[in-house]
Design a protein around this nucleic acid. Structure first.
Length: 826
DNA sequence: TCAATTGGCGCG
DNA sequence: ACCGCGCCAATTGA
C-alpha cells in the first residue's frame, strides 16, 4: 500500500478501552510501513519531561487513532503502549520527536503516577529535521507552526487550530468539551508527520551525499573532479565502486541517532550548585541598588550644574525611552527642562537614538554625558541577575535538581541551539560586584576627629586606623555563572574544546597553502597576517617581534611579565598614567583615574609572589595590565595593535564584513581610529595576498550559490540561504555572506556532531561512566566519576580529534581540563 | 490582559 | 551594511 500525499485522510477514532487499544496495537504491529506518531500533552513543562497527562496520536495509511492515557484503565493502556511503541519505533514518523520521546520517558502524573514508563531509542524519520535538509529557509524556521504551513503547502492538507484552544482552556477541558476536534487534531498531526516524512524521504533520496568506501565503509567526502566515480577515503586513498549515499542516508545514519543523543543530554541535565546561585542574589541586588543610586546622584548633579535646578530623577534604568529623554530630551510640554539635550549620534534600526553601550560611551567621550559608567555597570549586573541567576533558578527541575535545558539541531548552519535556559551563552568572565561596607555608616575623617558633640574626638592616627577596619571597606565579590555548573560529589566535569576550529576548517575548505603552512608550523596566524599585511610599514620588523609583543596580551603569566612588573618600580605606572591624564578629554578622565586607583591598589595588595601576580593579571583587563607594566605607547604596544587589527580582519573576512564595519571594529579593538580606506586595504591584503586561498574560496562559494542555489559543507551537507535571487541588493548580499560563512560554520558543526556521536557510543567512555551533558558549539562537557577523570579526559580529546572522518590538511586539535566546576575546567 | 515588537547583550 | 543563536524588560497595539 502506497501513501500518496494528497490521498483522502481517513476518519479518526478515539480509544480509551484497554482491550481495544491492545487489539489496535496488535493490528498495527502486524502490518508494515510507516506509522505517523505524535503526542498531545496537557502542559509544556520542561519540554515534555514533566506533564500531567497525554494522548498518543497514531496513524497508518488508512487509519487514524488517538489513544487516551489518562482516563480509567490508563495503566493497562500504558503497559500495552510500553511494549507496542518500542517494538514499532523504527517505523515512527515524528515531527520534533525529541519532545514526544520526552513525554513518554518523562514524569507523568497519571497512569503510572509520576513515573517514566517508556523509552524510545529511534524512529524512522523526523520530519522537522528532515525538512531542514532541503526546504527553503522561511521567516519562521523553527517551531511547531511550521508543521501546519508545510502540511498545507506540501500535502495540501487543511490543518485545524486546536492548539490555541488547548492552550487557552487547558488540554483536559479541550479533550472533554471538544473531543472530536481534539481527536482530529491529534491524529491529523500524526497524519501530517507521516506524509511529510515520506515526502522528505523522496526528496532527500535524490540529493547526493557521499560514498561509502568499498574497503572499510567509512564516508568519503571528496570527489575527484575529473573522474567522478572516484572518491577519497581517509584510509584507502582514491577508491571507486562503493555505495553512493544520499541525504536520506545522512538523516537515518546521523540525524536520528543524534536526536536520541540530544534527548539523552536533555534528560541527563546539567548538575548545578544551586546554593551558589541563591547566595549571589542578595549581593547582586544590593549592588544594583547601589549603582542605581550612584546613577541618580551623578545625573542629578550634572542636571543641577546645567540648569541650576535640583530635580528628583526616578528613571527606570531598563527603559530606553526614558534614557533617551534624559540624554537627548530638552524641555517637556510644560517648558521644564527634562533632559540634557545632547546631540544624537548613532541610530537604531527604527531611527531612534541608540542607547547601546557604544553610543553611550561615545556620548560620554564627546559630550560629557553623565552617568554612563554607572548605567553600563547597572546593565551588566542586571543581565547577570535577571537572565542568569533568576532565570536559571526558576528552571530547577524538581525530580533530580539538575538543569534540563533543551538542545535542538535546527539552526540554518547545522549548529545546535540551546534554550530554556540557553546554556550556550553563560558568561565566561567573572562579574565584579562591589558591595557597600558592612558597617551601616562610614564616618568621615572630619567627623571622627572633630571634638564637638557630633564628633568622635579621635586623633588623626586613630581615625585612620579605625577607617582601615574591614567593616568600613567596600567589599569585592566575583560572580561567575559557570561556577554554578558543578559536578556532584565523587564526579568531575570534563570540558574540552577544539582550538581554532573554524580557522582550521577554513584552511580545509580553502586549501589555502599559506594558511595551511601557518597552522602546520604552529605559528600564530594573526601575528603572521599582521607581519605580512603591514610589511611595508614595519621597516624590517617581522613575525617574531609581533609574536613577542603578543605575549603581553596573553593573560597567561609568563616570567617576562613578572620581571617587568618587578622592574617597574612602584609609582612608574602611576606616573605614566598621570602624564596621560594631561592629554585626555575631560570625559575620559574618570576612567583613567579609576584605572590609576586600581593599579595602585593592586600593587599595594600584590604579595610579591608569582601566584599573586597571576591573580593580579587575571583580575585586570589587558589594558590596565599594560598600563601597570608601563607598556603603553611603546613599540610592543603598537605591534599589539597591528595584531589586533589583523585579527579583526581575519574574523571579519570569514563573516563577510565590509570596510566600514571593519573600520569600526578595529577602532574599537585598538582604541585608535581606523579609516574605511585603511580597513578596505587591510581586507584586500589579507584576503587576496596574505591568504589568497580564502579569497578564492569566498568567490567559489558565491559562484556555487548563484549557479546551484545552495552551498555545501565539507561533509557535503546542504544549505539553501533565502533571498539569493531577490531584487533587493541588501538581501542578496546577505545571502552571499551566509554562503561564504556557512560552509565553515556548518562543517565545524558537523565535526562536533561526529565527535559527540563517537563519544556517546565509545565503549571505554561508557565503561568509565562518562556522560555527555552539554555542548557549546566547539566545546563539549562531560560528567565522569572522579577516579576516571584523567583517562577520560585524554580519551575525550582523542575522540574529538580523530572521529570526524574529514581529510583535513591540518589536524583538528582539542584541549581540555577536568575540574569540579565548568569555570575551573575551561 | 496578552502577544508581538524593539533594543540591548550574553555566547561561539 | 558582520555569521549563527536566545533571553530579558519595556513598550505597543489589539
Amino acid at each position: 500500500m502506497r501513501f500518496t500525499p494528497r490521498s483522502e485522510i481517513p476518519p479518526a477514532v478515539f480509544l480509551n478501552d484497554p482491550d481495544e487499544v491492545a487489539q489496535l496495537c496488535e493490528r498495527y504491529s502486524r502490518m508494515d510501513g510507516p506509522i505517523g506518531f505524535d503526542t498531545e500533552t496537557s502542559g509544556l513543562d520542561f519540554d515534555g519531561l514533566l506533564v500531567d497527562s497525554y494522548v498518543v496520536g497514531l496513524c497508518t495509511h488508512d487509519h487514524r487513532v488517538a489513544i487516551s492515557t489518562y482516563e480509567s484503565g490508563c495503566s493497562e493502556i500504558l503497559r500495552t503502549l510500553s511494549k507496542f511503541l518500542p517494538e514499532t519505533q523504527d517505523r515512527h514518523c515524528g515531527w520534533n520527536v525529541q519532545y514526544d520521546w520526552n513525554v513518554l520517558y518523562g514524569y507523568t502524573k497519571y497512569g503510572f503516577g509520576w513515573s517514566r514508563p517508556i523509552e524510545l531509542e529511534t524512529c524512522w524519520a523526523d520530519g522537522m529535521k528532515l525538512f531542514c535538509l532541503f526546504d527553503e529557509e522561511g521567516e519562521d524556521t523553527y517551531g511547531n507552526r511550521r508543521l501546519k504551513d508545510r502540511a498545507r503547502h506540501w500535502l495540501g492538507l487543511p490543518m485545524n487550530d486546536f492548539d490555541s484552544i488547548a492552550q487557552k482552556m487547558g488540554f483536559r477541558w479541550a479533550m472533554s468539551e471538544n473531543r472530536d476536534l481534539a481527536i482530529d487534531y491529534a491524529t491529523r498531526d500524526a497524519w501530517a508527520h507521516m506524509g511529510l516524512c515520506m515526502l522528505g524521504q523522496k526528496v532527500t533520496e535524490s540529493m547526493p551525499w557521499c560514498m561509502a568506501c568499498p574497503e572499510c565503509g567509512s564516508y568519503c567526502y571528496e570527489q575527484d573532479p575529473r573522474k567522478k566515480h572516484e572518491w577519497k577515503c581517509i584510509h584507502h586513498g582514491w577508491v571507486s565502486g562503493g555505495q553512493p549515499l544520499t541525504m536520506w542516508d545522512w538523516h537515518v545514519r546521523r540525524d536520528i541517532p543524534f536526536l536520541k543523543l540530544l534527548q539523552r543530554m536533555q534528560i541527563r541535565g546539567t548538575p548545578m550548585d544551586w546554593a551558589y546561585l541563591e547566595e549571589s542574589i542578595q549581593p547582586l541586588e544590593m549592588a544594583l541598588e547601589q549603582k542605581k543610586r550612584e546613577f541618580y546622584r551623578v545625573i542629578g548633579d550634572a542636571f543641577y550644574a546645567k540648569y541650576g535646578v535640583r530635580r528628583a530623577f526616578n528613571i527606570n534604568l531598563n527603559s530606553h525611552d526614558q534614557l533617551r529623554v534624559l540624554y537627548h530630551g530638552t524641555y517637556d510640554r510644560d517648558g521644564n527642562p527634562c533632559g540634557f539635550g545632547f546631540k544624537q549620534g548613532d541610530k537604531t534600526d527604527t531611527g531612534n537614538a541608540s542607547m547601546g553601550k557604544k553610543s553611550l560611551q561615545k556620548l560620554m567621550a564627546v559630550q560629557q554625558a553623565p552617568g554612563v559608567l554607572q548605567l553600563l555597570e547597572f546593565r551588566k549586573l542586571d543581565k547577570i541577575l535577571s537572565t542568569y541567576v533568576r532565570g536559571i533558578i526558576e528552571r530547577r527541575f524538581p525530580f533530580d535538581d539538575n538543569l534540563h535545558g533543551i538542545f535542538r539541531p535546527w539552526t540554518t548552519t547545522g549548529r545546535l541551539l540551546s534554550r530554556d535556559p540557553n546554556m550556550q551563552n553563560f558568561p565566561t568572565r567573572d562579574v565584579v560586584v562591589m558591595l557597600p561596607p558592612a558597617a551601616p555608616y562610614v564616618p568621615t575623617i572630619e567627623e571622627m576627629t572633630a571634638g564637638n558633640a557630633e564628633g568622635w574626638g579621635m586623633s588623626l592616627e586613630e581615625a585612620e586606623e579605625e577607617l582601615a577596619q574591614p567593616q568600613y571597606q567596600e567589599r569585592e565579590m566575583r560572580v561567575n555563572i559557570r561556577r554554578a555548573v558543578k559536578a556532584p560529589k565523587g564526579f568531575k566535569i570534563l570540558c574540552a574544546d577544539y582550538s581554532q576550529l573554524e580557522i582550521r576548517l577554513t584552511a580545509h575548505e580553502s586549501r589555502c597553502e599559506a594558511l595551511i603552512k601557518v597552522l602546520k608550523d604552529g605559528l600564530d596566524m594573526h601575528c603572521y597576517a599582521a607581519a605580512r599585511a603591514f610589511e611595508s610599514a614595519l621597516n624590517g620588523v617581522g613575525y617574531d617581534e609581533i609574536y613577542e609583543a603578543k605575549q603581553w596580551d596573553d593573560g597567561d603569566t609568563g616570567p617576562r611579565h613578572l620581571e617587568l612588573f618587578k622592574l617597574a618600580e612602584p609609582g612608574q605606572a602611576e606616573r605614566i598614567l598621570q602624564a596621560r591624564l594631561q592629554g585626555l578629554l575631560p570625559a575620559e578622565k574618570p576612567r583613567a583615574m579609576e584605572t590609576l586607583a586600581k593599579v595602585a591598589s593592586m600593587r599595594a595588595r600584590w604579595d610579591g609572589t608569582e601566584d599573586g601576580f597571576g591573580e593580579f593579571v587575571q583580575n585586570s583587563n589587558p589594558e590596565l595590565y599594560l598600563e601597570a607594566c608601563g607598556l603603553l605607547g611603546t613599540r610592543d604596544y603598537e605591534l599589539l595593535n597591528l595584531r589586533k587589527s589583523a585579527k579583526s580582519a581575519i574574523f571579519g573576512i570569514i563573516y563577510g564584513i565590509g570596510p566600514t564595519g571593519l573600520a569600526v571594529q578595529i577602532t574599537e579593538a585598538t582604541r585608535k581610529p581606523c579609516t574605511v580606506k585603511e580597513a578596505r586595504s587591510l581586507i584586500e591584503s589579507i584576503r587576496d595576498v596574505v591568504f589568497p586561498g580564502i579569497g578564492r574560496m569566498i568567490n567559489r562559494q558565491k559562484h556555487t550559490l548563484r549557479t546551484k542555489g545552495y552551498v555545501r559543507t565539507g561533509m557535503l551537507r546542504y544549505r539553501h540561504p533565502a533571498g539569493i535571487y531577490s531584487g533587493d541588493h541588501g538581501k542578496r548580499a546577505r545571502a552571499e555572506r551566509q554562503a561564504s560563512n556557512s560552509p565553515i560554520q556548518g562543517l565545524a558543526a558537523d565535526v562536533v556532531m561526529a565527535a559527540m556521536l563517537a563519544i556517546e557510543v565509545d565503549a571505554q567512555m561508557n565503561a568509565w561512566g562518562c556522560s555527555l551533558f552539554s555542548q557549546v558549539h566547539d566545546e563539549l562537557l562531560v560528567l565522569v566519576p572522579e577516579e576516571f577523570a584523567d583517562v577520560a579526559l585524554e580519551r575525550l580529546k582523542l575522540l574529538m580529534e580523530i572521529s570526524h572522518g574529514v581529510d583535513t590538511p591540518v589536524p583538528l586539535t582539542a584541549t581540555g581540563h577536568a575540574a569540579d566546576t565548568w569555570d575551573e575546567a575551561k
